[in-house]
């Protein structure tokens, strides 16, 4: 039996072995609280695509924070639409009032076009204030990387190849985080990896409509495979549950929104893997 960890973004330049130990340490904390342990003989693998992601982002000359404003004016209208879509969804979900957002706008003069980029930027500013530990830079850059993964076939192919290589004949439970959940879904939805015994997505952006809209008609990765989606409701990345409204698939995905992530931005993996319910579920899927 194998346990496969699939990490998210912002891991480039780090030591994969050290990262793997961080994940394992958190999981062991959760296992200890749950009073259980991994079955004997379990191997743990940590495919690492952090450097490839960074290289691809650089290759695609992706916009940085400053460039995002310019892109909003239409230089990359697909990216602009994506950002507008996600951030307006965030506004709705986080109950950010129009007045609150308007107060963050630099000018009283608002364009009346369909995409008022200043409005979108103001949403980001409100998010800065509303969510302690979440910098707008992090969320914007996160969305940028997700967007590029969704829209660049080359990036997708390169990253997917790294993960797919780890999907061997051995029975495997996949635990993925953040952008890694999108990568795992993209791989598993099209190929019937019989030996994947379960999928756990943590802090997943798959419920964001702007993200799922790029994934075609949604489907369960396999009706016979258990899929647990778990998150902290304060995690802005995990904006929505993977339920009938936001991720309509059959059979339905199990959602657990009761996690309390201890990290500053409520999104870090160590704040998810140390939860005893997650540790327990991993053990259950392996048995």
């Amino acid at each position: 039996m194998r346990l496969l960890f699939v990490h998210g973004r912002a891991q480039g330049g780090k030591d994969p072995n050290a990262l793997k130990q961080v994940w394992l340490k958190s999981l062991e904390e959760g296992l200890a609280i749950a009073g259980t342990s991994l079955p004997t003989g379990v191997t743990v693998d940590f495919p690492f695509y952090g450097d490839v992601l960074d290289a691809e982002v650089e290759r695609l000359a992706a916009p940085n924070r400053n460039e995002v404003s310019a892109m909003g004016s239409g230089e990359n209208d697909a990216y602009s639409r994506f950002m507008v879509s996600v951030l307006t969804e965030v506004q709705k979900n986080a109950s950010l009032s129009d007045a609150e957002i308007r107060s963050e706008m630099d000018s009283d003069v608002g364009a009346m076009g369909p995409e008022n980029w200043e409005w979108v930027q103001a949403i980001v500013k409100v998010l800065d204030k509303r969510f302690p530990g979440l910098t707008s830079l992090t969320f914007e850059v996160f969305l940028r990387d997700v967007f590029l993964y969704l829209t660049s076939r080359t990036m997708r192919r390169k990253i997917n190849k790294i993960i797919e290589a780890e999907l061997t004949n051995e029975p495997t439970v996949v635990v993925s985080h953040s952008l890694g959940t999108v990568v795992c879904y993209d791989i598993l939805k099209d190929r019937n990896f019989q030996n994947v015994k379960g999928l756990i997505t943590l802090g997943s952006p798959l419920g964001i409509k702007g993200v799922s809209g790029h994934l075609g008609l949604l489907r369960h990765v396999s009706p016979k495979r258990e899929w647990l989606n778990a998150y902290d409701e304060r995690d802005i990345v995990a904006l929505n549950p993977l339920d009938e409204e936001y991720f309509p698939v059959n059979p339905r995905i199990s959602n657990n929104n009761r996690l309390k992530n201890k990290t500053d931005n409520r999104h870090g993996i160590v704040g998810y893997l140390d939860d005893p319910s997650i540790a327990r579920k991993i053990v259950e899927m392996m048995s």
């Binding site: 697909a78 639409r81 809209g213």
Partner: peptide, 9 residues
């Protein structure tokens, strides 16, 4: 018009 769905799919 769903802005969160890419065009022409």
């Amino acid at each position: 018009k769903h802005n969160d769905i890419p065009t022409s799919v």
